[in-house]
Nucleic acid binder design. Structure first.
Lengths: 186, 186
DNA sequence: GAAGTTAGTTATTGACCACTAATTTTGACG
DNA sequence: CGTCAAAATTAGTGGTCAATAACTAACTTC
């Protein structure tokens, strides 16, 4: 397998591990095991653990943005809202790791900042702004609409992280975007 | 100082440390330094690091619930909403650590679960449900209203964790609860 | 003022972990 | 078949960290 392909599979494996354990709760050995290579080989593919986490974080933002861009393609206003909400419920069911990784990313900023790494926070905040813009435009550039949409998204991320099982009453009015449906219906 | 008072100061110190570093990113030595005692002494006050984290998490939930209960005391519906939103903006400004600790708590569930600790997740989810109820009743027991309120709260927690500075344009329509004001005004 | 309890310390240990260095395997090509 | 490079491994190192053990100092009580 080429180094580039390996790097790709490292990112995928590391996403699972970091999503569950966070930066400090994940060992490079756990990532290597999941990839199926020796632990030291990771350091041939990436300069260090931080670089792997950063790569995962950037991929995570890209994937999320792409989800919304593709879902809202050619749509506007409430139709776009509906499409993006549906797309996100699909992510909840099929790639909860992506949502948990988002949380880990947000939470890792403060620790990085304290450790003297100011670049990571910048990357995460820039990612957030890009994500925000990606949903802002299809929603008709309405700040309140966009803020509400993002807020629901973050609530979902938190509930997924907490491990509320599907079907729990906490998802009422939220899953599968029943609340959003509500807003569409009036 | 009595053991009980020490435990109290450990919880306060550990809140700051865990809020920034998370469970795995915080050393017991860092907590001890902040308290002003030797590191091994923490293990006289608590059975282990996990117990300290749990104590901090429980305190965090209690504090948040109390904030909303006290703010909404004697109020109902939109007045309660306004009061609770204002109370939360005060927390954002004065105790951002509390919000960050909430995030760390949510994010720690999956790791604990994987490590075989199913109790922690239960505690966190139970705390969430109590918090939910605490805002549900003053908001007139309206599920959608409550969900929206919680969603805004989680968005705020995420933005604080990411380190967006006060005054950043991302807070538009959110801080100090401008969006909620909006809703009250119509 | 002896005896016991409570608050606290220093010293240490064993496990883990990120990362490095040196070496070996694999595979493509002439 | 030989050669060269890329892919990958084994072995090891220095550092960190949670937890334990053993000891000390101060206060309380009779």
């Amino acid at each position: 397998m080429s180094a580039e392909e390996r790097r790709e599979s490292v990112i995928r494996a590391a996403t699972s591990e970091f999503a569950r354990g966070g930066y400090h709760g994940t060992s490079t050995e756990a990532i290597a095991k999941r990839v199926g290579v020796s632990q030291p080989y990771l350091f041939r593919l990436f300069p260090g653990k931080k670089a792997i986490f950063l790569a995962v974080a950037e991929r995570c933002v890209e994937d999320t943005i792409r989800t919304f861009v593709e879902a809202s393609e050619g749509l506007e206003g409430e139709e776009a809202l509906h499409a993006m909400a549906n797309a996100y419920t699909k992510v909840i069911a099929e790639q909860p790791e992506l949502l948990m990784m988002q949380m880990q990313m947000y939470v890792a900023v403060a620790a990085a900042e304290q450790a003297g790494d100011h670049e990571f926070g910048e990357v995460v905040r820039a990612g957030w702004l890009r994500l925000w813009e990606a949903v802002h435009l299809p929603l008709g550039a309405d700040v309140n609409e966009t803020t509400t949409f993002m807020a629901y998204g973050m609530l979902i991320n938190c509930l997924v992280s907490m491990g509320f099982p599907p079907g729990h009453r906490i998802w009422e009015g939220l899953y599968p975007s029943a609340r959003l449906k509500d807003r569409l219906e009036k």
